[in-house]
């Protein structure tokens, strides 16, 4: 299932069938939208009128490094730590 890998999820073989059946049923239900004429209808992303919101860029107190790292699964020297991303050349 391509959409699972896009989602960084692994669907076990035993579950593939049930997920696929459920998702097919849900997506087929969505198809009633095709019967709506939206040729001249703009999309709505937010219900209330929205404009860009600006404010002065004034430095304020922010989270300390210690607090920001307090929930990290792994850290070293004040940084988040993950497995090596690039191979050594």
């Amino acid at each position: 299932m391509h959409v699972a890998s896009l989602s960084r999820l692994r669907v076990e073989e035993s579950e593939t069938e049930s997920y696929q059946a459920e998702l097919d049923k849900i997506i087929s239900y969505m198809d009633i939208l095709t019967s709506v004429d939206t040729a001249n209808t703009p999309p709505t992303t937010y219900a209330l009128p929205m404009e860009n919101v600006f404010r002065d860029d004034v430095p304020k107190e922010s989270l300390s490094r210690e607090l920001a790292l307090s929930n990290a699964p792994d850290e070293e020297d004040g940084y988040f730590k993950v497995p090596r991303v690039l191979e050594e050349s």
Partner: peptide, 30 residues
């Protein structure tokens, strides 16, 4: 949660974006 993430990524994926996500936003307007 996995089900909704997959529905969402399906609706946003290339080839389905206009038919599903964008269509849903237009219906939201109506």
């Amino acid at each position: 949660v996995k089900r909704r993430i997959m529905i969402g990524n399906y609706a946003l994926s290339a080839g389905y974006y206009d038919a599903y996500y964008l269509k849903a936003l237009k219906v939201r307007t109506l």
